[in-house]
Amino acid sequence: MNKWVLLIGDLVMLYLFALIGELSHNKFTNPLGTLGTAAPFIIVWLVIGFLAGIYKMEHYNNFGTMFKKTALLWLIAIPAGLGIRALSTGEIPLPFFIVTMISTFILLFLWRTIYVWVNKRRNA
Rank of each mutant, 00 (worst) to 15 (best):
E22V: 02
S24K: 15
L23W: 12
F41I: 03
G49W: 02
A18Q: 01
G21Y: 06
L16I: 04
G21S: 14
W45S: 09
L46M: 09
H25K: 00
G36P: 06
F41H: 03
N30S: 12
V47T: 07
A18E: 02
A18G: 03
F17Y: 14
T34Q: 06
G49M: 04
L35P: 01
L32E: 07
E22N: 15
G49F: 02
G53H: 04
A39Y: 10
F50H: 06
Y15M: 09
L51R: 09
I43K: 04
I20Y: 08
T37Y: 06
K27S: 10
G49E: 01
N26R: 12
V47Q: 12
F17W: 11
T29Y: 11
F50G: 00
L16V: 11
G33T: 14
I20V: 12
V47C: 08
I20S: 04
G36M: 12
I42P: 05
Y15S: 03
I42D: 05
F41Y: 14
L51H: 03
S24C: 11
A18D: 00
A52F: 10
L19M: 05
F17P: 12
L51M: 03
G53I: 00
W45G: 07
V44Y: 04
F28I: 08
S24Y: 10
K27Q: 14
W45V: 13
I54M: 15
T29F: 04
P31N: 12
V44A: 14
H25R: 00
T29M: 07
F28N: 10
F28M: 07
K27G: 05
S24A: 11
I20D: 02
L19T: 02
S24T: 14
T29I: 14
F50S: 01
G53N: 10
L19A: 03
I42K: 09
A18I: 01
N30E: 14
I43H: 03
I20P: 04
H25I: 00
H25S: 00
I48T: 09
A38Y: 05
L32F: 15
G53V: 04
L46Q: 00
A52T: 02
L32R: 06
L16Q: 08
L35V: 11
